[in-house]
């Protein structure tokens, strides 16, 4: 108990006496974790969106123009009865055109010049959750002599997933580079702290201090720096998130800004824990190197 009290007092004192160097370490850890956090945040939100989109996958089947309307309704009824189908909406040529005019400014004149029937009628099929994984199995319900084109709505999700995997790989690489850089910078600032106290360490050894007594304050300092860096990074990340959501809401009229969420508590905890590991790792590296040289 008394040992711990001495060690804690020495750690607190060292932080106070080397405030500038400790601030540099905290700043480096915070910056590194902020970069990692921003990357994680982007990835987390993209993953989340893709998951939502995957859940919403629906099949669009475009009728050939010569299929009579009665036949189209019959197909819609047949599809609606299929257990894999959650919902079927029939979209006529006129409705498709109205939909496009409502969303694309100035397209009405061009459509008027092209005449009726430019956009084909279609059925929009929403699948039940269990069927989302295999939308291609619907081909048998959509015969080629009645449909000009069938959009399974999954190709782009697959491509996006591929992009996300590349992003993850890049993220891991970036994380390793950032962590190694931070570890290098922080361990060197810890080196400066140790160097400024080398006379003290030498005297501690002379009066019989154990290795744990000598290194414990440095490790505590490292841990405090790491946690402080982690907390600062989370604060910075929150600010970046808030600013980004605000900017997106003001600049583009899409729902992306509203869909963006802050990292969940577990991820925040992991970010702070990463700070702790970084600070502790850098201190351990420096102090063991120093003691092995001093031995």
């Amino acid at each position: 108990m008394s040992h711990s009290a001495h060690v804690l007092r020495r750690a607190a004192r060292s932080i106070w006496e080397n405030l500038y160097l400790h601030s540099v370490s905290v700043g480096v850890i915070a910056s590194a974790l902020l970069l990692v956090g921003v990357f994680l945040s982007v990835q987390f939100n993209l993953n989340r969106m893709v998951t939502d989109w995957t859940r919403d996958v629906h099949v669009s089947a475009y009728f050939l123009p010569d299929v009579p309307e009665q036949r189209r309704f019959a197909i819609r009824e047949r599809l609606a009865k299929d257990p894999r189908v959650a919902k079927v909406v029939y979209v006529s040529e006129e409705e498709a055109q109205d939909w496009l005019i409502a969303r694309v400014e100035g397209v009405s004149t061009a459509l008027a010049e092209l005449g009726p029937g430019v956009l084909p009628a279609s059925v929009e099929i929403t699948l039940v959750d269990g069927a989302v994984a295999a939308p291609n199995s619907f081909v048998d319900l959509l015969p080629a002599d009645e449909f000009s084109d069938v959009d399974m709505g999954q190709d782009w999700v697959a491509r996006f997933n591929e992009f996300l995997r590349t992003l993850q790989l890049l993220g891991a690489l970036l994380g390793v580079i950032i962590t190694a850089t931070a570890l290098f910078v922080v361990s060197n600032t810890v080196n400066l702290v140790i160097y400024s106290r080398r006379d003290e360490v030498e005297i501690e050894k002379l009066v019989g201090a154990s290795t744990s007594f000598i290194i414990a304050p440095f490790l505590i300092e490292g841990a405090i720096q790491g946690v402080a860096g982690g907390v600062l990074a989370v604060g910075g990340l929150w600010s970046v998130h808030a600013v980004l959501v605000h900017r997106l809401q003001n600049s583009i009229q899409i729902g992306v800004a509203n869909e963006m969420v802050f990292l969940p508590p577990t991820w925040i905890g992991l970010l702070v824990a990463a700070g702790l590991v970084l600070g502790l790792g850098a201190s351990t590296l420096s102090v063991t190197r120093f003691l092995s040289r001093a031995a």
Partner: peptide
């Protein structure tokens, strides 16, 4: 380290 806890050492340059 254990032995030094039962030993006092004094140097010419004080080591304070």
């Amino acid at each position: 380290a254990h032995l030094r806890r039962h030993m006092g050492v004094v140097f010419q340059d004080f080591k304070l």
